[in-house]
Amino acid sequence: MTTTATPTQSAPESAAGTYNPKSETGLAKGIKSAIFHIVAIGLVCIVLYPALWMIASSFKPNSEIGGSNTALWSSNFSMDNFVTAMEGIGGVSTMTFFTNSLILAVGAVVGTVLSASISAYAFARINFPGRGVFFGLMIATLLLPFHVVIIPQYIVFQQLGFVDTYIPLLIGKFLAADAFFVFLMVQFMRGLPAELDEAARIDGAGHVRIFGSIMLPLMKPALISTSIFSFIWSWNDFLGPLLYLNTPEKYPLPLALRLFVDQTQSSDYGAMIAMSVLALLPVLIFFLIFQRYIVEGVSTQGLKG
């Protein structure tokens, strides 16, 4: 009986000599990730450096701002610039300007959220004759530059006696004049299931109840996004108050900052920078508190599980 010899199996390769494509892939991903983070950190430093320089310079004496002194932080830490900035201009304290800006910003937020949400509900949930035409006309106003309507608006408000009051700056907010926010909320509402409305109508709810009890709670991301943008735009608005306000006691911070720069000595850069930091601080705090809702409010569609 003949036996056939079986070929001997070769010894397995050593662990050091084996080729593992997964390890190479993981190493490549690690290198790419490290490069990405290094580049991202570098870009963040470049973008944030002007803001850091402004904050640091607000605590420097004037002699260390600009010129050959390139140090970011100064050893001569001082609050004198902020003391000078808080004294105000022409007998009007900086807190008065802060209060005026806060009145305009809060009024803009309340008016925009109320009017835009109600208008958006009508466009998104109520079928009425000419809805598409009116919605198209509203969107068309986004293509109309603000500078085109400045003169007609000013003439109307002047004839009504509203010049040098906050009415021209706030009345449009309560009349859904900001088509961008209406469009944002309409798109958000269209992503919500229509079955919610039908179930509420079966239970006897009307439009007011549906809007207040169903739509508003679900629209929280869109409402907060609208509040953020409306607050920032109103707080930083310069042209509107410049046109309609004549009394310094009614000026908001952007106008006060311009007046402060004009009346302060050109060498007092520290006080100017401190005034700029004070004007930027509320917007920065407001944004940092609610910034996580911006992307959610713009991109969220439908309900979350």
Score class of each variant (00 low, 15 high):
184 L>I: 13
139 I>D: 01
209 R>P: 06
138 M>P: 00
188 F>D: 04
113 V>F: 08
134 F>L: 15
211 F>A: 10
199 A>T: 09
139 I>E: 02
130 G>Q: 07
115 S>K: 07
138 M>A: 01
135 F>K: 03
118 I>Y: 01
209 R>K: 15
187 Q>L: 14
122 A>C: 10
118 I>M: 04
167 I>D: 12
187 Q>E: 15
205 A>F: 05
206 G>M: 03
161 G>N: 09
173 K>N: 14
201 R>V: 03
199 A>N: 08
210 I>F: 13
205 A>Y: 00
131 R>H: 08
205 A>D: 09
144 L>I: 15
136 G>A: 04
118 I>E: 04
168 P>C: 09
191 G>M: 00
137 L>F: 07
160 L>M: 12
178 D>H: 11
127 N>Y: 00
196 L>D: 04
198 E>F: 09
194 A>W: 14
123 F>T: 03
163 V>Q: 10
132 G>T: 07
166 Y>M: 10
209 R>Q: 15
178 D>N: 15
187 Q>Y: 12
142 L>G: 04
208 V>F: 14
199 A>C: 09
190 R>Q: 15
125 R>C: 00
127 N>C: 06
127 N>M: 10
142 L>R: 07
189 M>A: 03
161 G>A: 11
137 L>D: 06
140 A>N: 00
168 P>W: 05
163 V>M: 12
176 A>L: 03
123 F>I: 05
199 A>H: 06
153 Q>K: 14
150 I>Y: 11
177 A>H: 12
145 P>Y: 12
206 G>Q: 09
198 E>R: 00
169 L>D: 12
122 A>H: 00
190 R>D: 11
139 I>S: 02
149 V>H: 05
155 I>W: 06
